[in-house]
Design a protein around this nucleic acid. Sequence first.
DNA 1: GCCGTTTTCGGCCCGACTGTTTTCAGTCG
Length: 572
Amino acid sequence: MENEKIARYFNEIADILEIRGENPFRIRSYRNAARTLEDMSENAASLVGEGADLTKLPGIGGSIADKIKEIVKTGKLTFLHDLKKELPSGLPELLKIEGIGPKKVKLFYEKAGVSSIDRLEKAARAGKLHGLFRMGEKSEEKIIKAIENYRKGAGRFRLDIGFTYARAITDYLKPLKGVGELISAGSLRRRRETIGDLDILAICAKKSAPDLMERFVKYDDGEEVIAHGSTKSSIRLTGGLQVDLRVLEKKHFGAALLYFTGSKAHNIALRKRAQGMGLKVSEYGIFRKEKMIAGATEDDSYRSLKLPWIPPELREDRGEIEAAEKGKLPDLIELKDIRGDLQMHTTASDGKNTIEEMARAAKKLGYEYIAVTEHSKAVKVAGGLDEKALAAHLKLIDKANARLSGIRVLKGVEVDIMGDGTLDLKDSILKECEVVIAAIHYKFNLSEKEMTKRIIRALQNRYVNIMGHPTGRLVLEREPYPVNIEEVIKTAVNEGVVMEIDAHPSRLDLNDVHARMAKEMGAKLSIDTDAHAASQLELMQYGVFTARRAWLTKKDVVNTHPLKKLLAFLNR
DNA sequence: GCCGTTTTCGGCCCGACTGTTTTCAGTCG
């Protein structure tokens, strides 16, 4: 059973308890436990199977540990089942409507018989809500609008899309007089694979702030002004993305950046730590009583809490504060550490550029090598190569190398893993390749057991070097195929196969949690763009972001090796 | 419901904005 599923049980409990108005700290406990489950790399069900002590996990005590065991063993949770009986099933969903919290849900249910989103909409349109406690006509309008937005499913956006929006809006705000630095904080700065909104922080003289806010709420691409205050405003763009702008003075910059970068969990952990030291942390600074002792920079903010600066990618409360405390933060990999790209396609299959064009583009990026890895014949739609075509293609790579200087093109292939775990091409041709990536493009609908067995068999082929986009997921579009990734990584470690982080922002596969698990299990990783055009080689940065979020250092990633060392590694 | 370098009981992060109010509750991040 997936951790996410268990986490969902606890979030449901929290929702229902909130609506019932129970002790907020008890509710938070359930949410904390859910988050622990979502973030941890080990599988909770496996831990239960091994008889591990779950109360060792943060935020999980005796009561919740028992509930986890019950869920794992029976697939059900009596406590939740009983809770659900007491309220209409549509109530928790109402919490997803912007501006509606547990108190309103309770109010609407008890005083207006609202038990679902449809009924809420009807009640709002019929004017049956104003007159209730602190409810006016404007509140009804907001609810109708919020329900429309919810139905549109604005949801989350891919990181690369987020960057595009962020750049456009900061370019728009920058020319205004009095505006200093403009920084996109939030999940974008932490380089999460998706973002829920944009948090833009502006350093601005006090007297220019109103003008900045005025300009912001009039942004061309804005569809709706959600809030318009003197230090904080929010708009929704036509595409559905919410953008928050926060204005602060320079002396608060560090504390503000820290606060708005998050994550929320990281901030809460910092604040708890501060409390223990007799300090208080807010977006304005770090305070002892009324006196501000730090906050101008992130560095001095962390230092006042007796911590080194923590890279934004690590700020998820996944152990970074403890590591920082002990001076054991990883020396994270950087884009400049990458010396080559080991997965890409050319015009020989479904790419847009030739071998030489790809090589020259890679050389411009400062690379020493690339591997050209066409699809194999099973991927018919992409013009995959059979043994004969691949043999001819490898000769073309030799010829290209003869003409090129300052960069080496490695002979590679992205060979498909068939349904039974055999490979789409014969060993005799794989043997001729310097880089063999094995990957799945078909038959996703196997059981977890079959899929795991299939992949393990493929990784046992002696010529396979890299497991390509190992879970097959597409960000926001397709769930991963069912697979026991722990078993796959274990096999990869034993067989000397590298686990890939496919850097394309629509894949990022492995993801951060799995890549960290791979590192901890002793696997090596590669970060490859899977570029289908020369311009896409620049997507490497997204893979590096994910690697950083996975705590990877230069030495965990094989394509940081110089060519010689890489070749030695591949010829294991 | 969880947690403990002062605690096994009594805490549990902090502040802005909105809509409704004459001082604040609710929601959000």
